[in-house]
Design a protein around this nucleic acid. Structure first.
Length: 473
RNA sequence: GGUGGAGUGGCCGAGAGGCGAGGCAGCGGCCUGCAAAGCCGUAUACGUGGGUUCGAAUCCCAUCUCCACCUCCA
């Protein structure tokens, strides 16, 4: 059974065949670190984290490279406005992005290269393009000559003559308004630290060139998958591909793009100011609920985000996590080794192999949970144990295994604080048990209400009383 | 203007010629001292107008609406 992935370049699903059997190189366009991350930013990271997990689960050794664009026009402007060094500004937001990624269980990439750390590679690439006639220097800047590369526009099917010239482009200076900067000459007023010496004088890299240079450095001249948000297709990825191929690199064999997050149908974005900060969401909801909200919609479909989105996701997470906790108490916990080695249900595998059909895969998870709960009620421990292992294994692929270490504390109750709380709550629960035994319902309910007011939910099961923290909203 | 995408039940979202994915919410039931959780059952659907077909949400034609990229954007 082979994995099929939708390739943006051909606009069709294709069998995924790695360049080298058993190994996969992925280059993912990461953040421009000039402001705080919002939930839209997390979408592509989560989508490609799921891809990586699925590839690894399918036996591949994955090298994930996700860059950090730590210098660009906006960063310089914003830092200057704030009276902060641009490099300090960039690092501050780089840390925020890293924290946000980690919070929702996106695993750290194998490499996280920064543009400013690869100036020699960038200069070498630009020089090669100048030397072979695909780029030209003008007043200390270097531009890619789009007319020199007939395949320009191939990735996004753009015809050169149909492109609207950039309104802010110095059309009179460049040979063609659609030529884009590979190297930007240092401008008066910009900090000295925002420039590097080059064959064309002092300057800094253009936006697109860093990805070409860094992909080559870490993944080679040809690699398997290039990913990013849908909005990066043009011009960013088109330009990347053009300059890399013009320099002789075969470059990415497949392009994958994740769709955006919308609110009332409109794209969430920094420039629109409708971005929901990750920190705000995480202040009110468990992190895995946010990951679930982002992952449960197919990565190529728009994800409509509303106030209800997180409430729904939190409820679903509580159902999944609750099943795992109850089932583990009943039939024993599953080890991480078992989770990683368990055979996955056929419907799940089929769904995931079809361009990462997470929604259908999750549907099977829900069906398995329901079967597990039914087995729990029926006292069928063998079926319950099997469902538990199956559910955890499937959720593990999605980075949503409630028993995974990264979600410890998100309702699992394994931390020292939870243990301390447990001993306190137990006293109340015992008192309530006495009241219930005496059929003193008023006292029993008063205790339950008091715990509920403190955010603790008490449930009477056939096998005893359990408590859990209620989900914020 | 060019390129690409979307319109599915109260909501979110799969599917893609023929047993109405899944979740949330709703309703009825089981369980419970009452709840909660869980389980069982259940209603409401494929933007509009034509066409093809024994049969269309799925194919064809037309049409309306919305969104994105072409300037920075995950």
């Amino acid at each position: 059974m082979t994995l099929r992935l939708f390739d943006t370049a051909t606009r069709s699903e294709r069998d995924f065949v790695p360049l080298e059997t058993g190994k996969v190189g992925i280059y993912l366009c990461g953040p421009t670190v000039q402001s705080s991350p919002h939930v839209g930013h997390l979408r592509s990271a989560v989508a490609f984290d799921v891809l990586q997990r699925w590839l690894e689960r399918s036996g591949h050794d994955v090298t994930m490279v996700r860059n950090v664009t730590d210098i660009d026009d906006k960063t310089l402007v914003k830092a200057a406005d704030a009276g902060v060094e641009w490099w300090a500004w960039a690092l501050r937001y780089e840390r925020e992005f890293q924290a946000a990624y980690a919070a929702v269980g996106v695993r750290a990439p194998a490499a996280e290269p920064r543009a400013t750390g690869h100036i020699p590679e960038i200069i070498a690439l630009v020089q090669a393009l100048v030397d072979n006639g695909h780029a030209y220097e003008l007043d200390g800047s270097v531009y890619f000559d789009v007319h020199s590369f007939p395949a320009y526009g191939a990735l996004t099917r753009q015809a050169l003559e149909d492109l609207t010239p950039a309104p802010d482009a110095p059309a009179d200076a460049k040979r063609d308004p659609r030529d884009f900067a590979l190297w930007k000459a240092h401008k008066a007023g910009e900090p000295e630290t925002a420039g590097w010496d080059s064959p064309w004088g002092r300057g800094r890299p253009g936006w697109h060139i860093e990805c070409s240079a860094m992909a080559r450095r870490y993944l080679g001249r040809e690699f398997d998958i290039h990913g990013g948000g849908l909005d990066l297709r043009f011009p960013h990825h088109e330009n990347e591909q053009a300059q890399s191929r013009a320099a002789g690199d075969p470059f990415a064999r497949m392009w994958m793009h994740s769709a955006w997050v919308t609110q009332s149908g409109a794209k969430m974005s920094k420039s629109l100011g409708n971005g929901l900060l990750v920190t705000e969401v995480l202040a009110h909801y468990p992190a895995p609920a946010l990951r679930l909200a982002l992952a449960q919609v197919h990565y190529r479909s728009m994800l409509e985000y509303s106030e209800q989105t997180m409430d729904d996701a939190a409820a679903t997470w509580a159902r999944l996590a609750g099943f795992v906790v109850r089932a583990s108490d009943k039939v024993g916990a599953v080890t991480p080794e078992q989770v990683g080695a368990a055979p996955l249900p056929e419907p799940f595998v089929i769904a995931m192999n079809d361009d990462l059909g997470v929604p259908r895969a999750l549907a099977h998870v829900h069906e398995t949970v329901r079967a597990g709960n039914a087995a729990f009620t029926a006292g069928d421990d063998a079926t319950l144990a099997s469902a538990l292992l199956s559910v955890r294994s499937m959720l593990d692929v999605l980075g949503l295994d409630p028993g995974a270490p990264e979600w410890a504390g998100a309702g699992a109750g394994s931390s020292a604080a939870m243990a301390a709380l447990d001993s306190m709550v137990r006293a109340d629960i015992d008192a309530r048990a006495e009241a219930r035994a005496a059929k003193d319902w008023a006292t029993a309910d008063a205790i339950r209400d008091r715990l509920a007011a403190a955010g603790i939910v008490v449930e009477d099961g056939a096998d005893g009383v359990r408590w859990s923290l209620s989900v914020d909203d």
